[in-house]
Every structure is written in C-alpha cells, then in structure tokens.
Design a protein around this nucleic acid. Structure first.
Length: 507
RNA sequence: GGCGCGUUGGUCAAGGGGUUAAGACGCCUCCCUUUCACGGAGGAAUCACGGGUUCGAAUCCCGUACGUGCUACCA
C-alpha cells in the first residue's frame, strides 16, 4: 500500500486558532496512523505575506502541541519551493494551459468595474450577481472580446486575471470521507479567479497544483470549503490528473458557545477564553492570549480539541496522542459542527494535571513560579508539593495560589478568622507548641501530628479547634491539604517561624 | 435570494429498525474530609416538527422549520 501524504496549510494572518490546530491534529493523526507524511506548508499569499514571524509562530504552536511537521518551508522534503511567491511561474504555466484547453479565460475587468456591475444588477433586483455563464459575455474578457483585442491587451500587459470557465448544467460528483457521496450542481458556482492580477494564485488553483505536484494523497480541510469542492474536482479533471486526485474530508466547524456562527478571534475576548494555542500578536487586533499562557497542558489541549468532533465510540474521553493515533479514523469524525465549551476544556486540563506525574509537571510549574518571582530551587520539595497539590489544580497557573505558600511566606494572614474563636488558652498552646516542635528531630509527619495532639490533650483543648488556626498560621488562609502534611514539607524552622509570626500579629 | 451541509438533554455525545435512549461537562442533593479541593453515591434534563414505510422508527424516505457554511483578484 502506498504511503499517504497529507498537507496542512494554515494562513498566517489567522494565527493558529482552535479550528486550525484541530485541522492540523486530524491531518497528523491520520498520517501517523497510516504511516505517512504530514506536510506543513504555510500559505504566503499576497494578503498574508506581510505578517512577520507568522511561520515560526505556527511551527512553535504545533511544536507545543507535540505535532511535528515532516517537511515544509523550514525543511525541504524534496517538493519545494514551498512558498507561493516562489512558485508563481508554476501556477502561471498551468493556468495558461487551462486557457488553451478552453477551461479558463483571461479577464480584464477591474475590481471597480465588477463592483459597479454587481451594484447595478442588485439595483435592478437581479438575484444573481455572480461572474458566471449568465454574465461573463457582458464583461471584458477573452471570451467576449475579439481575438485581436485580447492579444493586444495581453501584449501591453494590461492587468488581468485568469478565470475558470465553469460549465453550466453539470453535476459534479465526489466522495467525502466523512459525508460519503456528494453531488453538486455547477450552476451555483461562479467563474472563480484562478490567477490574480499580481500573478499569485488563488487557493483554488494553488491547492490543486500543489497537491498534484507534491503527491498529496489526502486533503483534509474545514467544512467551509465544501461549496468550492466542485471547482477543485473539475480542475483535477481539466488538468487530466483525475487518477491522482486526493481523497477529501471536510472537517466540521467549531462554533461559538452562544450560537450564531463559527468561532472567531473576537469571541475569545468577548466570552473570556482564549481561541489561540499560544499568545498571538495579531497585526490588526493586538496581543491575544493563548491556552498555553493560561495554564493548559498541550496534552489536554489537543485531547480536548480532538473530542470536539471525534470520538472512538467508547466511553473513553482522555486520550494520549499515541492513543488517538491508534484509535483515529476519519469515518468517525462528525459531519456537523460543535459548539466550543470552555468549562469542558478546563475539565480536560484538570484531568491531565491529575493524571500527570509530578515529574512531568515540574518544569512547567517551575517556569510559572519563576515568572512570578517565587524561588523554588529545591526540586525535591517542589516535587513533593506538586504531588500533594495537583489534584486541586485545574490550570497549571493554579499552582501559584495553591502551592506558592510552600516557598514564600504568605503575605496576608487571615487573622480575623483566627480571632473569632481565639482565647488565652489557645495562645498558650501555640507558645508551648513552638517549644515542643523545636525538640522534634527528625521532622517526621507522624511525630508532628502526635506531638500536636498530645499537647492538645494535656492542655484540655480540642485538636479540631486548634488545627483551624494552625492551618491559617501556616498558609494564610483556610484551604489546602492536611495541616501536618503542610508542616512536614515546610520544615521545622519554617513551621515555627510562621507560628511565631502569626502569634505576634494576634497581639 | 441561490446553492451546500447539518439537527439526540443547556453543552460535548453513544446508539444507524425492537435499548429502562450510554457516558462526560455544567447544575442540584447527600456522603467523605474538624478547612478547601479531590473522591464517592444519587437527582433533574433529550431524540426539532409533520407526514409516510414498517408488526415496530431516535434509527429508513419525503416535506417543513431551525442552525450553519459558501455565494471576493480571503483563505
């Protein structure tokens, strides 16, 4: 069986948002499952070329998600050049070939002329304002103009595009791996521009030529491309490459949580969650936060994304990347869009944090601590703390509030909570506790607890009433794991120090 | 407007002629925990509507409604 080759071509203008990463992920899963190549190819069309650093950003995002590209602009896999601007002559050549065979034509209309025609038709109440078989003979192109005039215009290099001549009254049949057989009429499709006036190809031309030349076997993209699939199918046919046409799959859309429409960049800000894998500096809209910065694990992020539109038919929801590769099948991808649910996304992350070892979490937590000026040089201690606290962290950044106090003395102590049931007996207990604790060596958790309870008994005080203030003394507030565990990790000196400190505040 | 794709709880969804219509998120109740979480046990909540086909329809067919996408020298 021949190897599969799939191709992922994001647009740099968009950053790498949820839909983009999921498309990359499904491409990658399929390629790996079938022992093929996953090709990353950043599309640098005239519109998107100016976004500096976008290519690196996309590679970094995929890298964070553990989706390594096999080849692409950054690595030559033998099918280069990869940038559209470097392939202009190729596209031109093939486009001209189509003109010669009668499936395309030169069009000399300026954008303004087309716009005014559309407006005119609309004003007349015409519903069809497309550049198609109904209107093309009224426009300025090599179909409507005398041959000599066309040649003359071409000779003086008059700005022009190459448009595809869509047939009328035809039905295009093709197979979608998710939806099965699809039949679409050509009448509703306009004469697509294939080659733009600046010599750059449109997506329609580029995707067909590149997929052919780069020997792509499977083409997976978003559902928004379904209506133009007939254009691509026809192009494969007109070029005479039918036998090499890839298998198509149109992936379901990710929709806004609150209805109406597909998830857009703006929705993140509006609804309070990220829509990008990593922080993205949009040239038009400024910095936009990412899942990474929020405290998501890449494992959880891609897991969550995969489950938005696919599942293996069992009850399993938490998958490693390798498990997904093993279980993935395009036939089980849904044919309808799914609304994004941030709460569920957080749940995935929480599950991943709980299931991950402290060793796995260590570098990430350390980095977050460092960014917030918390020094955690003692890795053994940090490992212990992470193990103790990870069940209660939904985001990696939660370790900051949940575990920070192990490494830095709490800045505020909830003394009012202690004072509510405070008295001289209790004060005396803690003063004595300091003495008792000072003599414990080694600082063992069982001894810490035993000494505490024994002292409570001799003081005729209930341990429960003392553990509450003890907890607040150690961590500043009423939360966290068992007090004696906290104390044992904190160490003898720090425990005593924090008791003394709080006691002084209570005076 | 035209064309395409879709429709199982609030959300993600399994199920593809016979099921008490799984499971998860979120929500609610209780248990555990002398804190907060985790965890555990329960609960409320669903086959868009109307016609067929069939002994029998969430499941197949048709229509309607609704959603969504495309209708650019953007992808």
């Amino acid at each position: 069986m021949s190897k599969v080759r799939v191709r992922f071509a994001p647009s740099p203008t968009g950053g790498l948002h949820l839909g983009g990463v999921r498309t990359a992920l499904f491409n990658y899963l399929f390629a790996r499952k079938n022992g093929g190549d996953f090709v990353l190819r950043v599309e640098d069309t005239d519109q998107t070329r100016f976004v500096e650093g976008a290519e690196k950003y996309i590679i970094d995002c995929l890298d964070w998600c553990a989706i390594p590209p096999d080849e692409g602009p950054q690595k030559d896999g033998g099918y280069g050049p990869y940038r559209q601007s470097e392939r202009k002559s190729i596209y031109r050549e093939y486009a001209e070939q189509l003109v010669k065979s009668g499936h395309a034509y030169y069009a000399f209309d300026t954008p303004e002329e087309i716009t005014s025609l559309r407006e005119k038709l609309k004003a007349e109440g015409k519903y069809n304002v497309q550049y198609d078989f109904q209107n093309r003979l009224n426009m300025r192109n090599s179909l409507s103009l005398p041959k000599e005039e066309t040649e003359a215009l071409l000779k003086i290099d008059f700005p022009h595009v190459i448009r595809m001549k869509m047939p009328r009254d035809e039905y295009v049949h093709f197979k979608d791996m998710i939806r099965g057989d699809i039949e679409m009429p050509t009448d509703g499709v306009d004469d697509k521009v294939l080659l733009k006036a600046d010599g750059m190809p449109t997506y329609h031309l580029a995707v067909v030529i590149d997929d052919y030349l780069m020997k792509i076997t499977h083409s997976f993209r978003g559902e928004e491309w379904l209506p133009s699939a007939p254009v691509h199918v026809l192009l494969w046919k007109y070029f005479g490459w039918e036998k090499h046409a890839p298998q198509w799959a149109h992936l379901p859309l990710i929709l806004k949580p609150d209805g109406n429409g597909k998830l857009s960049k703006r929705d993140g800000e509006r609804l309070g969650f990220p829509v990008f894998a990593m922080e993205w500096d949009d040239p038009a809209k400024g910095k936009m936060g990412g899942f990474k910065e929020l405290g998501f694990m890449p494992e959880a992020f891609i897991n969550m994304l995969a489950m938005l539109g696919w599942n293996d038919g069992t009850e399993q929801e938490v998958f490693t990347l390798d498990e997904m590769v093993e279980k993935f099948s395009m036939e089980r991808v849904h044919s309808h869009g799914a609304k994004f649910d941030f709460e569920k996304a957080k749940w995935f992350n929480h599950e991943w944090i709980k299931r991950s070892s402290a060793e796995r979490l260590l570098p990430d937590v350390k980095e977050i601590f460092e960014k917030n000026n918390i020094l955690a040089s003692d890795e053994d201690k940090l490992l212990k703390v992470i193990g103790l606290m990870k069940d209660r962290c939904t985001l990696l950044t939660d370790f900051l509030q949940q575990a920070g106090f192990f490494f830095v003395t709490p800045t505020t102590i909830d003394t009012p909570a202690i004072l509510q049931k405070w008295n001289e007996d209790k004060n005396r207990f803690f003063v004595e506790l300091i003495h008792t604790y000072s003599s414990i060596d080694p600082w063992d958790i069982a001894d810490i607890e035993h000494a505490f309870k024994e002292l409570a008994a001799t003081s005729k005080l209930k341990p429960g009433e003392l553990m509450f203030p003890f907890r607040i003394m150690l961590m500043g507030g009423k939360f966290g794991p068992g007090v004696f565990e906290i104390s044992s990790i904190l160490g003898k000196e720090e425990t005593v120090k924090r008791i003394e400190h709080t006691l002084s505040l209570l005076k």
